[in-house]
Nucleic acid binder design. Structure first.
Lengths: 200, 200
DNA sequence: CCTTGTTTTGACCATTTGGTCAAATGCAAG
DNA sequence: CTTGCATTTGACCAAATGGTCAAAACAAGG
């Protein structure tokens, strides 16, 4: 029986994960040092390693937590709902995740950029399975004439690309937009884009 | 007067830049080691440093070469051409760059993800200027009723996001698509998407 | 084949990095 | 206040890392 974590454990583990998210999402696994995480978390390096056995373990914990929630918006896409509203809702939920959890988005992006060594399996099994399932729903909608005929896989890719872009390329977006806030304009743009793309 | 490079110099500098592109584009600046580059280039580490004075210098040379060509497709967008064909052409050129130069795309993505420390200035000056100029052209087309009324900046972002996604998230795309080739489907999808989005 | 400049390398160095450990400190229940 | 466990830390280590340097190997023209 594992003992329940003390208050100190909860606080420090949370601080480490948040610090790790900060640093890993910016520099990737190999570009991140334990000292960086320790300093960001406000702990000494040996103290870090009292809570997590290794750099790998921190990274793994973050990835696991991420994968748990990352696909929720897609899972929520409901085959019995209104097609256009469902897809639109998915895109907007995903955009909200970019706005509210940009570090998570960048952590994921970094992992994929590096060839996804730690999650390739999951991509090929769980992710592919989920996407294929939802793509079939979208295909059925298209076949029934409820939405326009488009490739459902590329439709899903387009939602990923368009929404994550605002988190992953944040610096570039802000450099180009100056001081204008990105997300309101993005929401309007996406709404209009998918409205026109999906209308049969 | 600087001496012309010998054949050996040309060959080795090219090998180093190609190796650096391989490694930097995968692991980012901090995640990359000189030994990795040296091994990929088939040279010893001191020999590497005979051709480039430092890791920084290799990275800087790559970024400079990249920025030179990266914006060419957008520069080619012609205000006096046919609006829809021009934008469509830009999207397809950009998609071709993702297909033909995925390492360059990932090098850029890595740099932006890390906060663009080495190119933020350029983004804020040159890139913003270019984008604003082309956005004005697109805005004029919209005002004249030649294309639909959409936010030109977000339109440009959408082209970046949709095309670079296939290079930067290559692993994920292939995991989901299985063995189907991504780029033909992507080209068709983009064509249809922008056709519908832009038609007034 | 000799000279001169180019290219390559083995040995080396200081710093950084991931990680260990024994000892010290903090803390809460009895 | 003490005892026992949780927490923290300073000192340390081996390996990796970016980089240097003098000497060796090589190439080409005279």
């Amino acid at each position: 029986m594992t003992k329940p974590p003390t208050r100190i454990q909860q606080r420090n583990r949370a601080a480490i994960l948040s610090a790790g998210l900060d640093v890993f999402s910016q520099f990737g696994f190999r570009g991140t040092t334990l000292d960086q995480i320790a300093e960001t978390a406000g702990l000494s390096k040996p103290n870090l390693l009292y809570y997590f056995p290794s750099k790998e373990a921190i990274h793994a914990a973050l990835l696991e937590r991420l994968l748990d929630t990352w696909l929720d918006p897609l899972k929520a896409l409901d085959g019995s709902g209104d097609p256009i509203a469902e897809i639109m809702g998915y895109a907007q939920r995903k955009l909200a995740m970019s706005r509210d959890f940009p570090r998570e988005s960048r952590l994921f992006a970094n992992e994929i950029l590096q060839g996804a060594p730690r999650i390739e399996r999951i991509l090929q099994s769980d992710l592919k399975e989920l996407v294929d399932e939802k793509a079939a729903i979208i295909q059925a909608w298209a076949d029934a004439g409820k939405i326009a005929k488009i490739d459902p896989h590329h439709l899903i890719f387009s939602i990923w690309a368009l929404t994550q872009h605002y988190a992953d390329f944040d610096v570039q977006v802000r450099a180009v937009l100056g001081d204008k806030a990105p997300y309101d304009g993005a929401a309007v743009f996406l709404e209009s884009l998918y409205e026109k793309l999906l209308r049969p």
